[in-house]
Design a protein around this nucleic acid. Structure first.
Lengths: 239, 239
DNA sequence: CGGTTAGTTGAGTGCATTCAATCCCAGTGG
DNA sequence: CCACTGGGATTGAATGCACTCAACTAACCG
């Protein structure tokens, strides 16, 4: 049931038009003719909340550019433990790089989501034909590698409260780069999603939010957070 | 003091010639003419144990292909906490992808190491000129992204013993792919390096090794490990 | 020999977990 | 309208795993 979209609301979607700064939209780098050429290889797709764009181990299909909602890349162990590798926000490309023709991780719509889905072969061909686009993809990839590495050091080294503080700080930066409101900061994902992202239990995440609230660093309400003390938040974040 | 190299021994180096399977050596993909062209842009470099190939925040320089020894990519927080993102073994390329012209992480020689160091501009130009090499680099990159993601789920979800078991299993696979001996499996890095890699304390790593030894899953001596029960090791590793 | 570095092991602590109770809210149906 | 239900979040109490601090061993080197 993909309800109405394009506004901030209870369904937690992020509007497409306001989210995508130039640097996050390869299409907007291009002049109209190439833009049309690229868009001809694509179609819009909607994904219900909690549906999968792709599954780990399955052969790769489309290349997805998220245009609204949030997609989580995750993997689940045999006993059910789950690790969220990354959240993809509007403008992000996901499901692109897979080494052996199969997806390494699950791609799940955390909220209802929309994507611009490119035919993989034609997308790759387009990238190969356009040196500047290839360079942009390379840069994009380097960013991802850096982000995952940074995330790894968060999960490996920080305490629970530090991790949650870092998460809030990161999301603030990510939203700001996309010109999405950050005051308050919408966090449409569930506590358990945040927990799986940070390598914690959902109760621990909840406690950390409470601790940050008690210290007057943030204000928490439902699925929004208001940062009250950016300086102390960044200190706690270790950045 | 870069002593004698090219043999397995107390210094923990891995010999170049035996380590590098074809799939791990872009040079060997190429016919002699292009091979020479590429090597003309490179020089051999030696790094002392515990010296840095590059530092986080510093402008990128050469692109390194490790030819012997082990290089760790890591980052250190203000208070000294350190996270090892990845170990680079002979054949691996490191220091290549950096988004903004600066290194995101430290690159440190964990053992004495040798590299084939490429001039970055000329290396990039070579890659751009050769479609097959570019494809190989892309594949390499996809592998790295997958490995870091997998590592993240290890650090985020597994218990200390599981993490160490996973580490041993991973190293076994990595060595086997390079045709390096795995029985016994040389682990030249210090306990504290393993600890920083796995998000644990060195004492915890030591205890985990002891626990695996007591269960007759591995045999531990100095800087070598002998896997006694690959099946149970893999079970514990969650793979 | 003493000094340094690396590793192992023990004892006790603390932080995140587990288990459980409660609350809130949206949705549904009597 | 109100009662009921289920999902998500918060909080409390108790447990346990990894951490801290410390002692000890072994190897190496000046």
């Amino acid at each position: 049931m993909p309800g109405s979209i394009g506004h901030h609301g209870a369904n937690g979607q992020l509007p497409c038009d306001r989210c995508i700064g130039k640097q996050y939209n390869i299409c907007q780098l291009l002049e109209p003719s190439r833009q049309r050429e690229l868009l001809d290889t694509s179609c819009r797709q909607r994904f219900d909340k909690r549906s999968y764009l792709f599954r780990a181990g399955s052969p790769v299909g489309a290349v997805f550019k998220v245009t609204s909602g949030i997609v989580a890349e995750s993997c689940t162990l045999a006993d059910g433990r789950r690790q969220v590798i990354a959240f993809f926000l509007p403008g992000d490309i996901c499901g692109y790089l897979e080494s052996d023709g199969c997806h390494a991780f699950d791609g799940e719509a955390i909220t209802a989501a929309e994507t611009c889905s490119f035919n993989r072969e034609r997308f790759s061909a387009f990238v190969n034909r356009n040196r500047d686009v290839a360079e942009e993809m390379r840069r994009n990839l380097a960013d991802r590698l850096k982000m995952v590495g940074t995330h790894l050091s968060v999960v490996g080294q920080l305490t629970s409260t530090e991790r949650v503080a870092n998460f809030v700080a990161m999301m603030t930066i990510a939203y700001a780069a996309r010109n999405v409101q950050t005051r308050p900061l919408p966090l449409p994902m569930k506590r358990s999603d945040i927990a799986d992202y940070l390598g914690l239990r959902l109760e621990t995440v909840s406690r950390a939010f409470s601790k940050l609230r008690q210290r007057n660093i943030i204000d928490v309400q439902e699925d929004e957070v208001l940062v009250l003390d950016q300086v102390r938040l960044n200190q706690l974040s270790n950045r």
